[in-house]
Each structure stands twice: as C-alpha cells, then as structure tokens.
Design a protein around this nucleic acid. Sequence first.
DNA 1: CTGAAAGCGCTTACAG
DNA 2: CTGAAAGCGCTTACAG
Lengths: 339, 339
Amino acid sequence: MVPVNLRDVAAHARVSLATASRVFAGNANVQPAIKERVLASAEALGYVVNGLARAMTGRGPRSIAFVVRAMIGPTFASLAAGVESVAGKNGHLVLMCATDGDEQRERELIGVLRELRVKAVLLVGSTETDAAFDERAAGYARDLAQVGATLILCGRPPIMGQGDIVSVDYDQRSGIGAGVDELVALGHRRIAYVGEARGMTTAEQRLDGYTAALVRHGITPDPALMRVAANSEADGARAVDELLRSGVGATAVVAMTDNIAVGAYRAARGQGLTLPDDLSIIGFDDVPVVADLTPGLTTVHPPFFEVGVRAAEIALGVAPAADVLLQTRFMRRGSAAPV
Amino acid sequence: MVPVNLRDVAAHARVSLATASRVFAGNANVQPAIKERVLASAEALGYVVNGLARAMTGRGPRSIAFVVRAMIGPTFASLAAGVESVAGKNGHLVLMCATDGDEQRERELIGVLRELRVKAVLLVGSTETDAAFDERAAGYARDLAQVGATLILCGRPPIMGQGDIVSVDYDQRSGIGAGVDELVALGHRRIAYVGEARGMTTAEQRLDGYTAALVRHGITPDPALMRVAANSEADGARAVDELLRSGVGATAVVAMTDNIAVGAYRAARGQGLTLPDDLSIIGFDDVPVVADLTPGLTTVHPPFFEVGVRAAEIALGVAPAADVLLQTRFMRRGSAAPV
DNA sequence: CTGAAAGCGCTTACAG
DNA sequence: CTGAAAGCGCTTACAG
C-alpha cells in the first residue's frame, strides 16, 4: 500500500496535475487519448481518488446523518431504510448515530457532524416535550445552519414557534383515533388506554389522540381507565393485569404500542379471559408477527419507511423544506370484537 | 453563514496559524492565556473546525462502513446497534449502506467507501455461496487494502482459501442442531425442514445443520421431508401446507427462520391441527413477539448485537483480526412437544 | 511555548 | 484542450 496521489499519476502520464484532475473530476475538456493515458497510469499505479480531499474543496456529495436514541424498535429499521434508499439513489452516504438518550452524547454528535459538514441531520423519533428540548433543538438548528446544514425532525411534530425547523411526522393522534372509532362502533364505552406517561412526544400524541377521540364520541375520559406502562410486554402485562383487577369495568384497551398490546394479551389470559370476547385489544406500530397472534392483533400501521423517504428528500433539497404529516393505516384483524 | 477558517481565528486572536491549530488539535503546548484568547476568537467568529480538512491530513477518526443487502429483518437492527455502540465509544462514525442485492451497486459502494478512506467495511449478512462471490470479495479486500482499509464479513463464514478476510459469524449449524436435538429427545423421527434453497450462506448453513444433526442421531435425511420456501410467512405457510398434505408423516418441522415458522403455524391451523400436539415447530432468529404466539415459539436466538460488537472491535483494531464464531442460544418455549 | 514554511491531495479560475 | 499557479483548510516538523 504505497500511497499514490494525483501528482504521481500526472507525472506517470506526462500531463499536468490539472489535466489529471480533470479526468477524475469528470470534466469533459480532455482529449480522449490523453484521458486514456491518465486512466492507464492510474490503473498501473493503483491510484484511488481521495474523496476526503475532494470533499474539502467543496466538491463531492455531503453525507446526511441519522441520529436516533437507540437503533431498535419498529421505527428505526424502516425509517433508516427509507432514508438510505433516497440518499443512495442520489449518491449520498448516510451516517448512523445513536445517542442512547444521553444529552451530552447528542451534543457531541451534532458537534462532530457539523465539523464533518454533513448536509443535514435527521433527528429521529420521539423526544422530550419540555421547553428544554425545544431550546436544545433550536440551538442545534442554529449550529448546523452555521455550516450550511439543516436539522430535520422525524417522527415527532414541529416545534412550536420554530417554523424554520422542518418536521416529517405521521399522524399518531388520528391513528389512535381510528382505533377508538373502531371500538366505539363495536359498542364499547369503557375503553382503557395503557401507555407511557406524558413527557415524550409519542406518548403525548397517542394519549391525546385517545382522549380526543373519546370526547368526539361523547365519552368522558375516565382517569381510572388510563394506565401508565413502560413500552414493553412485561410492563404492559403488569398494567393491564392491574387494570383488570381494579374493577373499573374496561371492555377494551387501546395500547400505546404493540409491545404493550402483547403484554395485554398475556395479562388477560393470565386472568382466564378469552380474547377477543372478554376483552378487545388494539395496538399501534404493526410490528412483524402480531398479525399471527391468536387472535391477530388489530393495530395501526405507521408509514415509517415513507417518513424516512420524505425526510431524506427534504434533506437533499429534492423536496421543498415544508412540514410533512403522513397518514397511518388501520389494520383490522381479530383482536377487537363487539362488546 | 460566513465561512470562517482557522486563519481568520488566528488573525483575530493575533497568533499564528500554527498556534491556533494547536489549540483545536488538542495539542498541550499552548499557554493557557493564549489558548483562551484563541477559543474566545473562535467563539466570536463562529468558527467550526473543518473535519474534512483535518481528515485529509490523516488526522481525525476514519469512519467504518456497514454494508448490507437490505436494512431489514432481525439481523440488521441488532447488528448495526452493536457496531454503532463500539464505534461511538471509540469516536468513530458509521456509514450505513444498502446494496439491495445489486452487484453493481455493491461495487460502486465499495468504490466510494474506498475513496472516503473508511477504516473498514463490514459486509453484513448472508451471501451467495458461489465462487463468483468469493472472487468478488477477494477483489474488494484487495481494493480496500490498497487504501489501508479492511473487509470484514459478518454473519457468514470465512471464505475458504481467503485466510486474510476476517469473518465474524454465529454458529448457525449448531443452532439448528439444537432444535433437532430437542425434537429427537421428544421422540420425533420424522422431522421436516422448511427453508430457502441452497445458494446463500445462511440457507446452506441452516440446512446443513439440520442434516448433520439428523445423521448424528442416526436418522437418514429424507428428501421428502425437506421443503423449499422463501423467507416469508406466506411462503412458509404454502410449503408447510403442501408438506402436510403430502402424507410424508412429518411430526415436526424445523423452520429456517421464525418467519417461516409463523407461516407453519398458519398452515397447520388451516388444516385443523392443534399446536403443538399435532405438530411441533421450531424457528430460528427469535424475533420479537414470537414468544407470545400460542403456543410460544421455541426457537434459536442468534447473538446479532454481539456479532456487531466483535466486528467493530476488529475493524477498529481494538481486537485482533481473527475469525470469530459466536454461539446461539436455544429458546425453549411451547411449540415443540412429545410426539 | 510560538511562528514561518512546507505539505496533505485535490480543484479551479486564468492564461494560452 | 492544456498547464502554471493559487487556493481549499488544516497539520506538523523545524527552528527558535
């Protein structure tokens, strides 16, 4: 591995550095014969353009960064695939970073991404709903703008009063609403909700979607029917177990996520209930395999891949930098039955 | 966004370019007072180190690339998370690329990654088993070596006769073997296998693991019990449906993947069978939710995250560049019963 | 500890 | 179409 540079190639081909550069930069103004000679020299010498140097001079595509809390869950893979598909098609690379929910790591990441002159950073997934986050994000956006990069929020709503930070989101509220509609249509009135406590955008949106839908149907939200559970089967099971034992008369549960819904199956069965007759359950996320539970889980399918696609298009300037709100798809299966 | 460079900062702080550079390069040899002055100037001017320029001079961490067929399935997310966790911890970034199984795209990708002077490219997942792939990989390894980069295979065995290309893999053969062992212990002899046809390493390894285990137990593999199915629920269901109707007397099926196993549940139920009494089913991959099927799927858990970790460690030179073969974990649940 | 200078590898006006 | 030269933004011996 002898490092060979353009100068070496030029010398070997007996042309100037400029001419050699032109053949690799794809500049048309080079005589075919000379071009061949340069290419041959490059081949002979084992020359590989230095993309870093090229990038430094402002040429070459800038990468786009995907920053997520954890590379896990339904959101991650599909959304990333969506981003990669358009980035790849346009000749850009995507950098994948995880913050583990660590604020300092997040800051550092934005810092190095900025130094690397990425074209955009996609901040993916649910975030804190507090003002502290909003300010942090505004700061990131400013810092990035300083080097000509954009901050794009994915899978969470726009930040109020920050019209310049674009958001590509899916309608979680109406997604949950569709689930409530279904249950109401089946005659349910005592519809419980089990999900994470407020504090993060996704938890907030889904919970709000639930209460809003209830109100829309003239049902007063009952705090006794709203249970907090972490996003896991185990905690979902725990919460639903308690809900069922509490005697509040829930005939259906809207789970914030499929994970929690699966926990609900387990808890209900643990108490000897028959599904869906004794309890209707609706999930959210439409992760693989839930269609094959017994009964198949009725849930909401979020357009994660599409969110990734749209965000990447905005990142690359292929699409206008305007907020996007995509629709979810209601997946009717067997877990919601007439009351 | 006025581009400001180190020279501007140096001028503003009234020090030489060299001194300014030293404070950002983390060089200790700068008087605290001067250092402060430079930092203050940088702040005032809104200076952001150009990581591209730094990278070009050979400083700065080189990224590591993750190249996969599709950003999907059980392998992808966990493995990527493993890679990212060690890369992040060591200050390296990870580039995420998908080939979509397109050979030309794969080549191009290796090409740009090479130009970008990545430290290593992790070729992730099952690959063709033919000589053409082996040669292609050898070519990639050579091309990458030319710029000081390494090719690392992840989730597939080492290439015969290419001792210099490291592989980080998990033992798929013994993983499937554990499933067969379990079934034999439960009294099964007519054990079917449903999975992809030969041609890709994973299909090959799992199928071989099945026949090897059978032989080990003194059971002669019966071609009538070996069915081809694509890696999907739908095709798994189709294949198992045919298997069952064929009257070959299978009492158990070892599925190449959980996807196929889930299809097997569907097919068996479609024929009125009771699980697991009428048919034992064992999967592979241990994807989410399968534990909550009825009955819970007995399957094999591959250490994808760990594969990612080990590969990244080798990529970064934290671990020696030697082949790694990780063990799987057998997950005994309810889908395999005595015959 | 600090600076002047050369260098990293490429690109791009500017003149022919 | 081709070349000499300046430049991109940083780093690092080499002398103080």
